[in-house]
């Protein structure tokens, strides 16, 4: 690449890992907790519990994390210079959003070495919606000299529930940002660190995932898995309902929910594995995406599958909020 660097700082432009580091440092300094990437396939950082659950309810929350995100239909076998099946999001949630959130966000760009005075930053309308999560928000795509680098969203609903207070979600597209900083046209040319390129770490994976998702995934198996994960989620949700129903009249007899005594009933709502239910829903969501990329989803099935995933997500959100609500006082046994 013979062209001059776009950012005119004296130092060499940030590597991919430096850029992640810089944003992590910036947001940690702003009081955000640095969470770990989630260990399941997700389509976006929004789907991680650190966002999906934490935006519900009244408790303030500030978190930042890197999240590799898979979108099988965007796969291009590692051949397209700008498209990836798995890309890297840097996700920030601030609840409630500070009044100067736009200014703070712009400062975060400066932490990446982008001299704002030399560029043109625009906030262009772009509202976000995820039918599978029952979530939507209002916001912008942030354009840096014509390049979309961030989704900036004021969440309005999540899991089908109105949010109070709302959260702001910032989703940085790290590959694009790094390519911009390093002035390269091809994302595989991005320097991950001083010696390795993005392609060394990721090209084969892109190729293999594309081959599987587009060609070799067995639709029947994917559908079976979808059904199995869903059944397991619904079984758990049913058990929760049963336990709740029972606990209404038995509440007086139940031991304190805070005591983790072994005598605690296996059916107690407190012991309900809520996050597992949600994870099973995420499994379904990823299988849906594979089936979609595989071109194996028919007209009516599509709508129905989305509705089935949404049901799991919305039920999980409801239970989460229910458990946040102050519990009625428990009489000593």
């Amino acid at each position: 690449m013979a062209r001059p660097h776009l950012n005119q700082t004296d130092q060499a432009p940030l590597t991919f890992q430096d850029a992640i580091q810089a944003l992590s440092d910036f947001w940690a300094a702003k009081g955000a907790v640095l969470a770990l990437p989630y260990d399941l396939e997700v389509g976006a950082g929004t789907m991680c519990p650190e966002t999906f659950f934490r935006v519900l309810g009244p408790q303030p929350w500030k978190v930042a994390y890197v999240q590799p995100s898979r979108r099988p239909a965007d796969g291009r076998y590692g051949e397209n210079p700008n498209r990836l099946l798995k890309h890297t999001q840097f996700q920030v949630i601030l609840k409630p959003p500070p009044k100067d959130i736009q200014e703070v966000y712009l400062k975060s760009l400066e932490s990446l070495g982008i001299a704002l005075g030399e560029h043109d930053i625009r906030f262009e309308e772009d509202n976000w919606e995820s039918p599978t999560l029952g979530a939507w928000g209002i916001g912008w795509q942030v354009m840096l000299d014509g390049l979309e680098i961030t989704q900036f969203t004021y969440f309005q609903q999540c899991g089908g529930l109105d949010l109070e207070p709302i959260s702001v979600e910032l989703t940085y597209g790290m590959e694009r940002i790094a390519a911009f900083l390093q002035n390269v046209d091809n994302v595989f040319e991005v320097r991950w660190d001083k010696s390795l390129k993005y392609e060394t770490l990721r090209r084969e994976e892109e190729f293999e995932l594309s081959v599987y998702d587009f060609e070799q995934a067995d639709p029947a198996t994917c559908r079976e898995l979808f059904g199995a994960y869903e059944r397991e989620a619904l079984r758990l949700l049913d058990s929760y309902k049963a336990a709740k129903g029972g606990s209404v009249e038995e509440r007086g007899k139940e031991p304190s929910p805070l005591a983790s005594s072994p005598s605690l009933s296996a059916q107690s709502p407190r012991r309900f594995p809520l996050r597992k239910v949600y994870e099973l829903g995420l499994k379904c969501s990823h299988l849906f995406n594979i089936l979609d990329a595989r071109g194996a989803i028919s007209v009516t099935e599509r709508v129905a599958l989305i509705a089935r995933i949404r049901k799991i997500a919305c039920d999980a959100a409801r239970i989460y909020v229910e458990r946040l609500a102050p519990q009625p006082e428990v009489q000593p046994a």
């Binding site: 397209n80 700008n82 030399e118 560029h119 000299d145």
Partner: peptide, 20 residues
């Protein structure tokens, strides 16, 4: 756009778009 940085940014994005 005194240094022509913004123009080059736009050109790069357009190149990627056209390549797509």
């Amino acid at each position: 756009d005194p240094k022509g940085l913004i123009r080059r940014g736009h050109e790069r994005v357009l190149r990627a778009r056209f390549t797509d």
